[in-house]
């Protein structure tokens, strides 16, 4: 199993092959289209991470000490970015997720999508992923 940092590096390398902005976005859009849709039963209010313009739904579960995320959005670029976040964070331990710096977003030139003004739910998505990890960590601690 690769570490979060290793997966981030992999993505940065993938993106370094693109010369222009449209190639990058074509790739992200493609990732978005390929993201496995979330079942309708999960697309409910409590799983909603609402941005001003687009909506993300996310669910997570803890299995054998690792967190697995699944998510979807009504906007395809956000969906592609969400797909990247899942690729990086899903399947890792809560502590590793909480400490993840997620520098790859800046390195692949997508930092603007985390900016406050974008209000697209992606920043809230990252926060929610880490919050879930914190909750699972607290649950684990209380069991021990």
């Amino acid at each position: 199993m690769k570490s979060i940092v290793e997966i981030e590096e992999e993505i940065v390398e993938d993106f370094s092959l693109f010369d222009s902005w449209d190639e990058k976005y074509e790739y992200i859009i493609d990732m978005g289209k390929k993201l496995k849709p979330l079942e309708d039963e999960h697309k409910k209010e409590e799983n909603k991470i609402k941005g001003c313009q687009s909506t993300v739904w996310m669910v997570s579960e803890l299995k054998d000490g690792k967190i697995y995320y699944r998510a979807e959005s009504d906007a395809v670029i956000v969906k592609g970015l969400v797909s990247l976040l899942i690729r990086v964070l899903s399947g890792h331990a809560p502590t590793e997720i909480i400490n993840a710096k997620l520098d790859f977003i800046d390195k692949i030139g997508m930092k603007q999508h985390l900016a406050q003004t974008r209000s697209n739910g992606l920043l809230s998505m990252v926060k929610q992923m880490k919050l879930d990890a914190t909750v699972y960590l607290a649950q684990q601690a209380s069991k021990n």
Binding site: W21, D22, Y25, I29, C52, Q53, S54, D74, A75, V76, I77, V78, H113, N120
Partner: peptide
């Protein structure tokens, strides 16, 4: 097409429009 996706791709081409409600 979601308006936000259009807005992002237009911005990358130097075109500032408003998307959303």
């Amino acid at each position: 097409v979601h308006p936000q996706d259009l807005g992002i791709l237009l911005d990358n081409q130097g075109v500032a429009v408003r998307t959303g409600h």
